[in-house]
Design a protein around this nucleic acid. Structure first.
Length: 283
DNA sequence: ATGGGGGCCTGCCGGC
DNA sequence: TGCCGGCAGGCCCCCA
């Protein structure tokens, strides 16, 4: 569910509770999420210090003092809840356990991080830090959209010759890693490109124009997440869900927001996913 | 290799 | 009020 900006916001929210801190106790309440947890996960986490909390695409990666890395994916419905002293005077107590609290990390500081995931599309795994991105879930990922390897020449080359709709191409994590349905819809609206347009039919100019737009859309969403993060931490410590103002996503039948445009936002289904777009502004 | 569809799960919301 | 279908921001796997 969360896309790159939400995952980045969760990572930043977890930093004060986790980075540099020791996991005093890891509780694992079931054997799997989408896949089985690695063997002895609770034991391997308990006592470890989190040296660094990173993000790759939609994955959060915690490098541990035990030379292992904990990989976390939030799937569609995964949430992180922080409780304990770090939240300030009103939140010294931990909340009552909730349904779908699958993994609970209690830190030596007294802070607690709870992974809750109703649909269980999320995942956790552990791998030797030294093997880095050889992990099967990371190995085939495309470049980070906010990184240097993602540029106009790269994207144009990857879209060239592709017969799939641009919507599907941008959702393909092998081409660029971290975009999901919402931000692809918003990107294509801002670029004025129809989601139905074949990726390979875009001119180099139009394909190249997507790069700064993708960067802007994601950067703005991260900034919005940063401000909502403060709000969440003032309330219940829940991370990962914040409301943005979308131009097209979820706005089927509502008026297009482009000045002067009188069209309504439409919704179509492409490879099983909803695409929202303005039929007038996006060609 | 590429593109499309199915499936995994639970919760919520709207319509009857 | 209850039931039912449709929907959900991800991603792997299988098939043609």
């Amino acid at each position: 569910m969360p896309e790159l900006p939400e995952v980045e916001t969760v990572r930043r929210g977890l930093l004060p509770a986790m980075e540099g801190q020791v996991i005093a106790l890891a509780q694992v309440n079931r054997a799997d999420l989408r896949w089985p947890f690695p063997p002895q996960m609770a034991e391997r986490l308990t006592g470890a210090r989190v040296l660094r909390l990173r993000r790759r695409s939609k994955y959060i990666l915690a490098d541990l003092s035990t030379d292992e890395t904990l990989l976390i994916h939030l799937g569609m419905s995964g949430r992180m809840l922080i409780s304990g002293d770090l939240l300030g005077a009103f939140h010294h107590d931990h909340p009552a356990p909730q349904k779908h609290d699958h993994v609970v990390l209690t830190m030596e500081s007294g802070a607690r991080v709870t992974f809750n995931d109703a649909r269980r599309f999320g995942a956790m795994d552990m791998f030797p830090t030294a093997t880095g991105e050889a992990h099967p879930l990371l190995a085939a990922l495309g470049p980070e959209p906010l990184g240097n390897a993602f540029d106009e020449a790269y994207l144009s080359a990857r879209l060239k010759g592709r017969n799939t709709p641009i919507k599907s191409a941008l959702l393909d994590q092998h081409i660029v890693a971290g975009l999901g349905n919402i931000y692809v819809c918003e990107t294509l609206y801002r670029a004025g490109i129809s989601p139905k347009k074949k990726a390979g039919d875009l001119t180099v100019k139009r394909a190249s124009a997507l790069v700064p737009i993708i960067r802007d859309v994601l950067t703005e969403a991260i900034e919005a997440g940063g401000s909502s993060l403060r709000d969440y931490r003032q309330t219940d410590g829940e991370l990962g869900y914040f409301q943005h103002t979308f131009q097209v996503y979820g706005r089927e039948g509502e008026p297009c927001r482009t000045p002067g445009c009188t069209a309504q936002i439409e919704r179509i289904v492409q490879s099983g996913r909803s695409s929202f777009y303005c039929p007038t502004c996006q060609r």
